[in-house]
């Protein structure tokens, strides 16, 4: 762990050692290969689900993909830089309500809504980060914890977007060329998930990611060798918030109705943390594994047990995993290999 930390510090701070051990420092990122594989996998999923032809498949798929976006977003700040964001539900709801407000005000559709949601939630992240990130990391975490509560107060008091009664969005019967509205929503979320994972992977392998890892391992040392810590943290917070907002924007379109209670559901906050930590925070693959595993489990379990019990199990899994497997599933496999 510490060896990796020192290496990443050097990689960001000084260019000289990088030339000395080029193989160790910069493994070829294979960006093109990754994107190709991701797109192929996505296409295979769409084709496979169409062959199965069951609406529930799209529903479950959307559920899991949304958590892939959310936990990849959390991982950029939490996994790479070690700053815990408890406000996933708040950022997500900010995205969802941006989409609702824009539709009411200008009649904008889902796609511009997603862009705007990313923008608004990103600004929210930047603002929170700007006010609290110069202090110790826990203060940022506490601020994000409260952010969700206050945003909920604002939304409940804001009648234009439905207040506590909630807001409706009339779903079109079909969106050509998709076979059903469910497939349309699934494909939208699939594209977002591929983008989110791709962004999180690119960040991890770039100078930005190495700087964030240096911050996580030893912020003072990173600062001392010239990593612009505050700037990197702010970039990560903005990116994290924006991606969470993007994950939330399709939510009202997906369910056709959204009220503050559903948008700010604690389930998002706890899953956004539990999934990366269980999968393995600090690697782009960890949140994907966690989201597929935990999301799939919850989808399967909702059929048999109540949703409260379902969430309770997620809470216990989070506690047990951080205690016994602090590096997550990925870390466990790496140690054995």
């Amino acid at each position: 762990m510490s060896a990796a930390g020192e290496r990443s510090v050097e990689a960001v701070g000084l260019d000289a050692p990088r030339a000395a051990v080029p193989k160790l420092l910069a493994p070829s990122p294979h960006h093109a290969l990754f994107w190709l594989c991701a797109v192929l996998l996505g296409a295979a999923l769409v084709v496979g689900l169409r062959l199965i032809g069951n609406e529930y498949g799209y529903f479950a798929g959307y559920f899991i993909l949304q958590y892939i976006v959310l936990s990849s977003a959390w991982n950029i700040l939490g996994g790479y830089a070690g700053y815990v964001n408890f406000g996933a539900a708040g950022f997500m709801a900010a995205g969802a309500y941006t989409a609702i407000a824009l539709r009411k005000a200008f009649g904008l559709d889902l796609l511009p809504g997603i862009v705007a949601a990313g923008f608004v939630a990103g600004l929210l992240g930047l603002g929170t980060g700007y006010l609290t990130l110069r202090l110790r990391g826990v203060f940022f975490s506490i601020a994000t914890l409260c952010l969700a509560v206050v945003l909920q107060t604002l939304i409940v008091n804001w009648d234009y977007v439905g207040g506590s009664r909630g807001a409706y969005i009339v779903r079109p019967r079909e969106v050509p060329p998709f076979v059903s509205y469910g497939e349309y929503m699934f494909v939208v979320m699939l594209v977002l998930a591929i983008l989110a994972v791709g962004i999180s992977r690119t960040v991890e392998l770039s100078r930005l990611g190495r700087g964030l890892q240096a911050i996580r391992d030893n912020e003072r040392a990173a600062e001392a060798v010239g990593v612009p810590t505050l700037r990197l943290k702010l970039i990560a917070t903005t990116l994290c918030g924006a991606l969470m907002g993007v994950a939330g924007a399709p939510l009202p379109y997906y369910s056709g109705y959204l009220n503050p209670e559903a948008a700010f559901s604690l389930a998002y906050a706890v899953n956004a943390i539990a999934m990366p930590l269980i999968g393995g925070a600090g690697s782009w693959l960890g949140p994907v594994i966690g989201a597929v595993l935990l999301g799939g489990l919850q989808q399967a379990a909702t059929v048999t047990i109540s949703s409260a019990l379902n969430l309770w199990i997620v809470g216990w899994m989070l506690v047990i995993f951080v205690a016994l497997f602090p590096r997550g599933i990925i870390g466990w496999f790496r140690r054995r290999a």
């Binding site: 309770w312 809470g315 951080v322």
Partner: peptide, 26 residues
């Protein structure tokens, strides 16, 4: 699990968040 291993920051916070969540849902 956390303090002794020097992992208060990320894992410790997640632990207390989990405890909070377990209490609330419980």
């Amino acid at each position: 699990f956390f303090e002794k291993r020097g992992e208060e920051a990320l894992q410790g916070l997640a632990f207390f968040f989990g405890v909070m969540f377990i209490i609330e849902v419980g």
